[in-house]
């Protein structure tokens, strides 16, 4: 089957760089499956799990806290704010993240700027995704 190059980088390291068949990325407006030859796009990511498929099977699952992806027909580059293989996620960290985010959300008032409220909401959703992924692992 046709493949394309997938690169997954976080500020601290290059996590993945190899040809794959398909990748499913948690784009800001819904999950998105990318196959070779996809039209060029730049998308924002929300917190969620990136799934990599090779030989018709999911071979790699990584959790990202948000970021960006640049898609060209022959290459996908994911710039993740923070990326962890799902198997290494810990429930305890996920739980504290959710708690923190919930506390931040509870602290918002009518006066909070809408952008800020959105950022807090996004963080909360990402944290919940993280705990779901951690439970499943």
């Amino acid at each position: 089957m046709a493949t394309f190059d997938l690169e997954l980088v976080s500020p601290e390291k290059l996590l993945l760089s190899r040809p794959v068949e398909m990748v499913i990325i948690p784009a800001a407006e819904g999950e998105m499956g990318v196959l070779p030859g996809q039209a060029p796009m730049i998308v924002a990511l929300k917190g969620g799990v990136i799934r990599v498929q090779e030989n018709g099977q999911v071979t790699e699952r990584l959790f990202v806290m948000g970021g960006f992806a640049e898609i060209t027909p022959g290459r996908v580059t994911v710039l993740a704010d923070e990326a962890t293989p799902v198997a290494q996620l810990s429930r305890a960290t996920a739980a504290t993240r959710v708690q923190e985010a919930e506390a931040a959300y509870a602290a918002t008032t009518v006066e909070t700027a809408p952008e800020e409220r959105e950022a807090i909401m996004a963080r909360l959703l990402a944290a919940r995704e993280m705990s779901v992924a951690a439970e499943a692992a």
Binding site: A27, E29, M41, A44, F68
Partner: peptide
């Protein structure tokens, strides 16, 4: 030519608004 090709999701402004603070952070890093 490259710009004309890219599609943006959501739109350019939203992505840029998220990208710029990250860029600042990476420069400092």
């Amino acid at each position: 030519t490259a710009q004309a090709l890219y599609e943006y999701e959501p739109d350019e402004a939203t992505i840029l608004a998220q990208l710029l603070p990250k860029n600042l952070a990476i420069q400092i890093y």
